[in-house]
Structures are given as structure tokens and as C-alpha cells.
Computed example of a mutant assay.
Amino acid sequence: METVGIIGGSGFIGSYITRKFLEEGYEVKVSVTNIHKSEKYQHLFDLKNSENLNIRAFKLEDLDPLKDFIEDCGIVIHSGTPFQLDVKDPQAELFNPTIQGTQNFLEAINKSSNIKKVVFIASVAAWNTNFPMPAGGKSFTDTFDEKEVRYTSKDSHPYSQAKFIANQVVEKFISDNPELPFEICSVSPVMVMGKSLSNREDSTSTGLQFLIKNKIAPDEFIQRLYDNNVPFAVVDVEDVAIATYKAATTKGLHSKDYLLTSETYKVWDIHQMLNHREPQEKAKVIYKNDLAKMDLEIQFKPVKETLRSYSEEIT
């Protein structure tokens, strides 16, 4: 039985990735930052084949336990960077764990003798730190795919900047190590929505869905989304997990970075659908998914289906 290590495998996206690998018959190791906060990972033991699940606690900033974690893994998934919009100390809360954690992770995998494939769960922010606003020089209706030049701005949200820099770290590592004995590839989801596998209330992704469903604006960032009826490219959380599994188990994808995206709707239409009403406008495809559909052989769920899955569980 092959072993996969999933950094951050108990989070919103990570839980679905953990479930997928368990269902496919893998021995799954999941990292958490605090073993005493069982409410953050206990839901994983309700999954099918959870007898093949092992939980390990450490932080990515700590190199030695990270090396020990991946030692016997044939596949390693890095889904362990924080997704936070409400940030008081960007350096401590985002830049250090995202960038230093990525650097430590790359150092650890470079010394492993068993790894065959590494997959990074990156972000659309690694392509455009202005998301959901257009990249520089583009409009809301201009399409975006993997042929575009990556765009960043120092005025973008710190989370987006951290993800962009982390991706640069990965690209440099690949360039500096042309003879790696394993493949590295990345998947970059747009706004990830859907039903959570846990009952946690601190997920930014599920929290944003709750805010949009109920027209709540706790800060200026969210209020601007409403005021400008900003279009959002959305992808289903389960589709992200399937794409990650395909990326991890398909050969010949080294150095590729796939946009994972379905359709784009304006935020008020997302609000409508979360409340079981029809959107006013038809879906558009702004962030394109052709490369992922071709290489990973995945068909992305319509956004209506994704939002229905969430809203049927939440009142």
C-alpha cells in the first residue's frame, strides 16, 4: 500500500484530498499544527478507510519533523499554507508560514529518497494577485489561462502576495534542480466553494460563502465586492481534490501549474444561487480550464451545483 503525505490534510480543501486518497486505497498521513485541537481533524476518522489514516503534528517552519513526516511517502501534497483575509500581522500570519514553510518543504523533499511526485496546492493568486479583480491591463470580461504572464501588485492583499512569492520559490527550485528524481507540479484553484466535510466554523472559504449568502459585510474588502458586484470565478472543492489526485498519479506533468476553475458569476448572482434562486445573468468562463480538462481528464461541476451543495447544509 503506497503512502501519501498531505500537509494540511484536515482543512477545507485538504479534507477532500484526504478523502480521495483514502477511497483510492492509499495509506494517508496528514499533518496538523496542534495535535491537541482534535476538533480540527476528528472528522477525518469518519471517512471510508480511515483505519489507513495517521495524524502527525508539526509546523512547516520546523524542518526535522517535516523530514520525518515525508520519509516513507511516495507522494506528497502541500496544502498547508494559511488562507486568511482578516490579518493583523501579515509577516507572522501569512508571509512566514507560506514562504518559509515552502522553502523548508522544498529542502525536505530534496533530501528524500522515496518521493515520486509532489503536488502544490497553489492559488489563482499565484497567477494574479488582484483576483477577483482583473490582472493589470485586463478587464472583467478578458479571459485568463496558463499562457498569460503572471501578474502581481504590491497593493494586493497580503495573502495573495504570499502565495505569489511562494510560487516563485517553487519555480526557482525547479529551475535550479533540473535532475530531480521526482516530479513537481501545482494546481491553482480560483475561489473554492462547496460543502465542508467538518463542522469547523473558522474556514475562510466556507465563511465567505456564509457572508455572501446572508449579505454580511464584516469589513471593507467584502463590502467592495457587494458595492461593485464583482465577478467571481468559482471551482468546486471536490473537483479540486479530484484534480489533485489526478496530478499526483499522472506521469509527465513536471513543472506544470494548472488553473482549476469552472464558471464565473457576479457576487449578487452567487448570493441568489446560495438562496435557491436563479441568477440574473448567464455564467461566463473567464478563467479557462482547458489545460486541466485535457491533462487531468476532469470535468468541472457547474457553479449552480456547487452552491446548491453548500446551501442545502447551511441555513
Results as ranks from 00 to 15, higher is better:
L60K: 01
L60M: 04
L60F: 11
L60G: 04
L60H: 05
E61N: 09
E61Y: 08
E61F: 09
D62G: 05
D64R: 08
D64N: 09
P65G: 01
P65K: 01
P65E: 03
L66R: 00
L66G: 12
L66P: 03
K67W: 08
K67M: 08
K67D: 09
K67F: 10
D68S: 11
F69V: 00
I70F: 12
G74L: 07
G74Y: 10
G74E: 09
H78M: 13
S79Q: 00
S79M: 05
G80D: 04
T81Q: 06
T81D: 06
P82L: 02
F83I: 03
Q84R: 14
D86H: 10
D86P: 02
V87A: 12
V87R: 12
K88P: 10
K88Y: 14
P90I: 04
Q91A: 13
A92G: 10
A92L: 10
A92T: 11
E93K: 08
E93A: 13
L94N: 07
F95H: 03
T98R: 14
I99Y: 07
G101W: 01
G101F: 15
Q103L: 12
Q103D: 01
N104M: 10
L106W: 14
A108F: 14
I109M: 05
N110Q: 07
N110T: 05
K111M: 13
S112A: 13
S113M: 02
S113R: 11
N114L: 04
I115V: 12
K116C: 10
K117S: 08
K117F: 05
A122I: 07
S123P: 02
S123W: 15
A125E: 03
N128E: 00
N128L: 01
N130F: 13
N130R: 14
F131S: 06
F131L: 05
M133V: 04
M133A: 07
M133S: 08
M133N: 09
A135E: 01
A135D: 02
G137A: 12
F140N: 10
T141E: 11
T141Y: 14
T143M: 06
D145N: 15
D145M: 06
E146Q: 04
V149D: 05
V149C: 03
